[in-house]
Amino acid sequence: MKRIVYLFVALLMMATADAQTLTERQKGLAACACLMAQGDMNRLEPTVRMALNKGVTINELKEAFSQLYAYTGFPRSLNALGVLSKVLENGRSSESHPSLLEDGRVVTDEGKANKQPEWQEGKPWKRPAEWDDAKKAYELGVKNQTQLSGKPFNYEFCPQDDYYLKSHLFGDIFAGDQLSAADREIVTVAALSGLDGVAPQLAAHKQGAVNMGNLKQQVDELCTWLCNEGYTLNTKWPKGEPNPYGKYFIGQSYLADVGGGVMNVTFEPCCRNNWHIHHKQVQVLICVAGRGWYQEWGKAPVEMTPGTVIAVPAEVKHWHGAQKDSWFQHLTYHKDVQEGAGNEWCEPVDDATYNASSYRHHHD
Rank of each mutant, 00 (worst) to 15 (best):
V5K: 05
L7T: 12
M13N: 02
D18P: 00
T23R: 03
E24I: 01
L29C: 05
A31L: 07
A37T: 08
N42L: 10
E45C: 11
T47C: 09
T47Y: 12
N53S: 14
G55L: 07
V56D: 00
E63D: 13
R76I: 02
E89S: 11
A113K: 10
N114Q: 15
N114L: 08
W119S: 14
W119T: 02
K123C: 03
W125H: 11
P128G: 03
W131T: 01
D132I: 01
V142F: 00
Q147A: 15
Y155W: 06
Q160N: 08
Y163D: 13
A181T: 10
A182W: 09
E185L: 00
T188G: 02
A191D: 09
G197K: 12
K216W: 02
L222S: 13
W225L: 05
W237V: 09
P244H: 11
I250C: 06
S253R: 13
Y254G: 06
A256C: 12
M263C: 03
N264I: 03
F267H: 03
E268W: 03
P269A: 06
P269M: 09
I277W: 04
H278N: 14
Q281R: 09
I286H: 15
I286K: 09
V288F: 07
Q295H: 04
W297I: 00
P301E: 04
V302P: 01
M304D: 08
M304I: 10
A311W: 00
P313M: 12
A314T: 14
S326V: 07
Q329E: 14
L331Q: 15
Y333C: 09
P348Q: 13
V349Q: 10
D351A: 13
A356D: 15
